[in-house]
Simulated scan of single mutants.
Amino acid sequence: MSRSNRERTETTRNALIEAARALFVSKGYADTATPEIVEAAGLTRGALYHHFEDKRALFEAVIAREAQAVAEAIEAGSPQFGTAYEKLISGAAAYFDAMAVPGRTRLLLLDGPAVLGLDELGAIDRENAEGTLREGLSDYLSESGKPLDLLDPLTVLVSAAFDRAAIAIAAGGDRIDYERAIAALIDGIGADQLRR
């Protein structure tokens, strides 16, 4: 494929993803029809079905892009140097910043699980923010002298706490309170003896 063809393909995909994202956020997945998406993107239905099998595949692309953006924001917001604890706390703030992007909480935490299912959404998350969290927790446990045998369930539980906090913040909860609660949770992981 020539460079200009690749650029056109990428431009078309981006237009579809951006138009779909806006409609999924404003109307929800179920109430968004593919003709609306192609009209908003200024494209044809043929272009949509050339790039995506169906509306669900397009939604998955939107979710993957959102998840990647969150992971990139966490990476950018986490210091290169410092303790694992400091990196986790900075990463938490970066996560909440990333989730404050309008529509992101709805897409990733409400509609995403309903449309894609927990397994598929979990796979996307593990490649992105949850994968970053797992690395951070691994470093933190190691620095705290704790065994890594509970790393996987701790990652799932702490990730769920982050997600629940983001939902509460989006609904009007006090972000500072949730950041403090996440810090207390992370403190507890480092301070308490984790048992088998």
Rank of each mutant, 00 (worst) to 15 (best):
H50W: 10
F52L: 03
K55W: 03
K55D: 09
R56Y: 03
R56N: 08
L58D: 04
E60C: 08
A64T: 15
E66W: 10
A67T: 12
Q68K: 15
A69L: 13
V70P: 08
A71G: 14
A73W: 02
A73V: 07
I74F: 08
E75M: 11
E75D: 15
A76Q: 13
A76V: 04
P79I: 03
Q80S: 13
G82C: 01
G82V: 00
G82A: 02
T83Y: 00
Y85R: 15
E86A: 15
K87A: 03
L88H: 07
G91F: 07
G91W: 08
A94D: 04
A94L: 05
A94H: 07
F96H: 02
D97K: 05
D97H: 04
A98T: 06
A98R: 08
M99Y: 02
M99V: 08
A100M: 02
V101R: 06
V101K: 07
G103T: 06
T105D: 01
T105M: 07
T105I: 08
L107F: 01
L107A: 00
L108F: 00
L109D: 06
L110K: 02
V115D: 03
L116K: 08
L116Y: 00
L116M: 03
G117Y: 02
E120K: 11
L121V: 02
L121F: 04
G122H: 00
A123C: 10
I124K: 09
I124V: 12
D125L: 06
N128T: 15
A129I: 10
A129Y: 06
E130L: 14
E130C: 11
G131R: 09
G131D: 14
T132G: 11
T132H: 09
L133H: 01
R134F: 10
S138F: 11
L141P: 10
L141H: 05
S142M: 11
